[in-house]
Computed example of a mutant assay.
Amino acid sequence: MIPTLETDRLLLRAQTMDDWQAYASLMMSEDAAQMGGPHTLEDAWGLFCHDLAQWPLLGTGALMIEARDSGECLGQTGISYGPLFPEHELGWFLFPGAKGRGYAFEAACALRDWGFGVRGLKTIVSHIDPQNHRSRKLAERLGAELMTDPDRPGPEVLVYRHKP
């Protein structure tokens, strides 16, 4: 039910409890400020469970990004949906030390293509904090276009629309 996707350098796989500590550390840090954080331990746990629970409920969810050569968990990419998301939303984050090597681009491309292709989604967007310049550049590198008047989860969120 939860896909495993492979790219040249990455394995995108279901999360496990082995991923929890790095996930919680990131979500409770200042690095999570552009993802609604920093979060409490309780909120981080809820987000972690939410990322996994979406798969059986909605047919999409989050996948951990793992380096194929070392097995190191580098971060996460996911397609979220449900009552908090007006459309399927592609997101990503990397753990400290993994940024600047193209991992988020490679992982997001693979999951976006899976979403449009295998899953048959008609639309995918990315919700990005206006101050998150790295994610905005990544969305543009992925070919997504900034929308001028979309449905959004909050007035401060930018919405980038991806193309199949």
Score class of each variant (00 low, 15 high):
46 G>P: 02
126 S>G: 14
95 F>T: 08
40 T>R: 07
122 K>P: 01
103 Y>N: 05
30 E>C: 00
47 L>W: 12
19 D>W: 03
27 M>W: 04
60 T>P: 02
106 E>G: 13
85 F>D: 13
106 E>S: 13
134 R>M: 11
40 T>V: 13
80 S>F: 12
124 I>E: 06
55 W>T: 08
106 E>Y: 07
56 P>H: 03
51 D>E: 02
63 L>C: 10
71 G>M: 09
114 W>Q: 08
18 D>V: 09
116 F>D: 10
68 R>S: 14
85 F>T: 04
20 W>Q: 05
68 R>A: 14
52 L>H: 05
103 Y>R: 06
39 H>D: 03
97 G>V: 10
44 A>H: 02
109 C>H: 13
44 A>G: 06
131 Q>F: 07
48 F>H: 13
102 G>C: 09
126 S>Q: 10
22 A>C: 08
112 R>L: 12
68 R>D: 02
131 Q>P: 01
93 F>D: 01
76 Q>L: 15
116 F>K: 02
72 E>G: 02
38 P>M: 04
75 G>S: 10
59 G>K: 03
73 C>L: 02
41 L>H: 13
54 Q>G: 11
53 A>M: 07
49 C>P: 00
38 P>K: 04
18 D>C: 06
55 W>K: 06
46 G>Y: 01
113 D>W: 07
43 D>F: 01
89 E>K: 00
77 T>S: 04
36 G>T: 12
42 E>C: 05
107 A>L: 10
105 F>Q: 07
48 F>N: 06
73 C>P: 02
74 L>C: 11
76 Q>W: 03
95 F>I: 09
25 S>E: 13
35 M>Y: 08
106 E>C: 10
99 K>M: 13
76 Q>K: 09
17 M>H: 10
64 M>F: 14
18 D>K: 10
59 G>S: 07
58 L>M: 14
50 H>I: 01
98 A>C: 07
133 H>E: 12
35 M>T: 04
30 E>H: 00
84 L>V: 00
110 A>W: 00
134 R>G: 15
111 L>S: 09
124 I>R: 00
130 P>A: 11
20 W>Y: 15
101 R>K: 15
67 A>W: 03
24 A>F: 02
40 T>W: 11
113 D>P: 03
56 P>D: 03
128 I>T: 08
71 G>Q: 07
82 G>S: 07
95 F>Q: 06
61 G>Y: 01
67 A>I: 01
62 A>M: 08
72 E>T: 15
124 I>Q: 07
